[in-house]
């Protein structure tokens, strides 16, 4: 009963805020409407008793939306909150694709004969989930994870060369860097 109510409340929130992304005219509201939608989906995953996946979904999506706000300023070159804007483009394609995907998925969920449950959930779901996803390739995945992080860091280091926005100390006529632009660590 309680789980049923929670499911429907979260479902309505997820869909409504998902729609709100295309209705609101402020970039910040659209971003955080999407975040709320994902939080509701994370809540649904928690209802499936996949605590780890549910929380990680919420964690990653909120962080992602916050980082998106950084990009908003980096690349927009203006304050989008002050200028109401249409958040959509390619409307017909987008609506067609999303309605199509919804019909296929919802139809699938309703029409597929669901199997009966066999066995019970294991004691440690997170552990079981890790084994299920990675199985014998645990070591490879662990190593690949570290390599991926190193790649990302290296990519950022290469991309973030010194730019004209760097600060060369208080004296703006100064030609070279006095180390301030490199941050505290390298000084």
């Amino acid at each position: 009963m309680l789980i049923g109510i929670a499911f429907w409340v979260l479902a309505v929130i997820a869909v409504a805020t998902g729609l709100a992304v295309f209705v609101v005219n402020s970039m910040a509201r659209a971003t955080y409407a999407l975040a709320v939608s994902f939080i509701a989906v994370g809540g649904q995953i928690l209802l499936l008793q996949q605590n780890y996946l549910g929380l990680i979904t919420i964690l990653m999506m909120v962080m992602e939306m916050a980082v998106m706000a950084v990009y908003m300023v980096m690349f927009m070159g203006m304050n989008p909150a002050l200028m109401p804007m249409d958040m959509t483009h390619g409307k017909k394609t987008a609506i067609g694709a999303s309605v199509g995907a919804f019909v296929v998925l919802a139809g699938g969920a309703l029409l597929v004969p669901w199997p009966d449950r066999r066995g019970g959930p294991p004691d440690d779901l997170t552990h079981a989930l890790g084994l299920e996803i990675m199985d014998g390739k645990m070591l490879v995945m662990a190593v690949v994870g570290a390599v991926m992080v190193a790649t990302i860091v290296a990519g950022v280091v290469l991309a973030a060369g010194r730019t004209r926005y760097d600060r060369f100390g208080d004296d703006l006529r100064q030609r070279g860097s006095n180390g301030a632009s490199l941050g505290g660590a390298q000084k």
Partner: peptide, 24 residues
């Protein structure tokens, strides 16, 4: 909670959104 540490982490990440929203 079987993932209590992740719960803590999730809440502290929410602060990213909250402080930024306050500023915005």
């Amino acid at each position: 909670l079987d993932v209590g540490v992740v719960w803590f982490n999730t809440i502290d990440v929410l602060v990213w959104a909250l402080v930024w929203l306050t500023g915005w």
